[in-house]
């Protein structure tokens, strides 16, 4: 099923290629930051999909690698700022896991720019939007992931 095209055509949609970005977010900071962007109506790029977990410490290499395996053009891992973790040190653990993931992604031959880690607080709605716009532009520049076969085949 394809989306209905009854509404007006997006200005940019027809010319630009739109990436498929997966964002892993923690409940307390980065997911809340995205909500804050919403409350403040801060418009940003729509080509990402959020997966919420309680803490960035839960974001294991397997999640990120699976997203890339299935064809994600970019993956953003996000959590609370260091020192601000709802669970004290979950984000520092997330950082260690992220380093491991990054090494795997490099070995597998995906561009480093497809994977990013950002700390975003619940208050930083504007920064969330900025990060999304920036990351979307970065991934757009890299083009589709070689593993993006279009139909998410496995």
């Amino acid at each position: 099923m394809t989306p209905t095209k009854t509404k007006r055509k997006a200005k940019s949609g027809s010319t630009k290629w739109n990436p498929n970005i997966v964002v892993f977010a923690c409940n307390w900071c980065s997911y809340a930051g995205a909500d804050t962007a919403g409350v403040s109506r801060i418009q940003h790029e729509p080509h990402f999909r959020m997966i919420r977990v309680m803490c960035s410490g839960r974001i294991q290499p397997g999640f990120v690698l699976k997203a890339f395996e299935r064809g994600a053009d970019g993956v953003l891992v996000s959590g609370c700022h260091i020192g601000d973790c709802h669970y004290i040190f979950g984000n520092e653990r997330a950082l260690e896991q992220f380093e491991k993931t990054k090494n795997m992604v490099r070995l597998l031959g995906l561009e480093e720019g497809r994977l990013r880690l950002e700390w975003i607080s619940a208050a930083e709605g504007a920064r969330f939007a900025e990060v999304i716009n920036d990351f979307t532009a970065q991934v757009r520049k890299l083009g589709p992931s070689p593993l993006n076969t279009g139909n998410g085949e496995r």
Partner: peptide, 8 residues
Amino acid sequence: HGGALQSM
């Protein structure tokens, strides 16, 4: 390992 190696 959360299936990380299988994904790899």
